[in-house]
Design a protein around this nucleic acid. Structure first.
Lengths: 124, 124
DNA sequence: TAGTTATATGAGCATTTATTCAAGTGTTTT
DNA sequence: AAAACACTTGAATAAATGCTCATATAACTA
């Protein structure tokens, strides 16, 4: 009854597997950008944003075109484009009244593809 | 004043860019698994889960080892391992009282790597 | 059998997030 | 200059999410 279940206490495993834990600790330190990585994937982890990216991979498009394509309001699309721009996944170009959006670079496609490989393996 | 701002109405662009929009529409139909893809990236889009995956890439580990490594409660880790397992990113193996978790396959690493490439490009 | 250890799980709570609504900016047209 | 158009933005709201706490389960141990 003295044991507090919800505290971060060491258990016997931690001692038994000490070398494994320390090894993993080194690996964690090695990659300090794991938080940035999570932020990047968070941007991909929304169906609206991923559909925008997928559409832009075909062609440069303006906000209202994307809106009708995804059957959503311009406002909603504009908000999400802002997120995508902050993540440096898309860039924009103004031509008069119209603002055209396109993919920032080619990595986007590669991140997509790796994900799709996993999806297709899953459904086997 | 008759214009409703927040409805999904066609604008002049949609007519002017008709072929581009239709082309993109074909591309959307082509990949009906975009929602699954978003779900996958959503799992990667959390720092706790991505650190778990990163740790497991080094070695198979039990729940309490991961907990001390990330300085979090066993409960929190267990909840996240459940999410990772449902996404088929990790698998588990029981050995007496202890449950060992490991990566389901090698795609995980590749998805990681693509993300890291983007991160490193960004910070240039 | 009772107690301990390792893990899982359901409910509750606080935070984040995606969308909507309303109002704004910037550009073109009349 | 005024109206129309394409887009942006801030506030509000509803839904989703991650963690905590308490409890449950499963395996081992005394």
């Amino acid at each position: 009854m003295t044991k507090k279940f919800n505290s971060i206490e060491r258990c016997d495993c931690n001692v038994i597997h000490e070398d494994i834990v320390n090894q993993a600790r080194d690996k964690m330190a090695q990659e300090e950008s794991l938080y940035d990585l999570a932020e990047l994937f968070k941007v991909f982890g929304d169906s609206t944003r991923i559909r925008i990216l997928w559409a832009l991979h075909e062609a440069e498009m303006c906000v209202c075109d994307i809106a009708v394509l995804l059957n959503m309001t311009q406002s909603a699309i504009s908000h999400q484009l802002r997120v995508l721009k902050q993540a440096e996944l898309v860039k924009s170009r103004r031509e008069g009244k119209i603002v055209f959006y396109s993919l920032e670079d080619e990595h986007v496609k590669q991140i997509f593809d790796q994900g799709l490989i996993h999806i297709s393996e899953e459904s086997k």
